[in-house]
Amino acid sequence: MFREMDAVFKALADESRRALLDQLHKSNGQTLGELCEHLDMTRQAVTKHLLLLEDAKLVVVVWRGREKLHYLNPVPLQEIYGRWIGKYERHRLQALSDLKKGLEDNKTKKE
């Protein structure tokens, strides 16, 4: 259990790997080539980061013929969420997060 969570936090503690997850969140099931197109990283770097994300189970691979597709697997994140966020806090937190997002979007638009 602890080792699993360590791997998740280690994987998340890097801007490039978070960018990779953002890419998959935007469009799930991408090949290595597709991921490289949208990221300012070498193919080798993307491969290395993907392996770490796979090890942490944040990315799962599905083979379609000879194509290797990468999927964002949010289950480990759900476990982190479930561990510290109480069952009655969810809606209030969502409201706060929506408020923050709304205010910040507004500010960006005005500037």
Binding site: N28, G29, V60, V62, R64, L69, Y71, N73
Partner: peptide
């Protein structure tokens, strides 16, 4: 085979 939309994995 169509590309799946979601893939979820958990180790139990």
């Amino acid at each position: 085979m169509q590309k799946p939309k979601f893939v979820y994995t958990t180790y139990i």
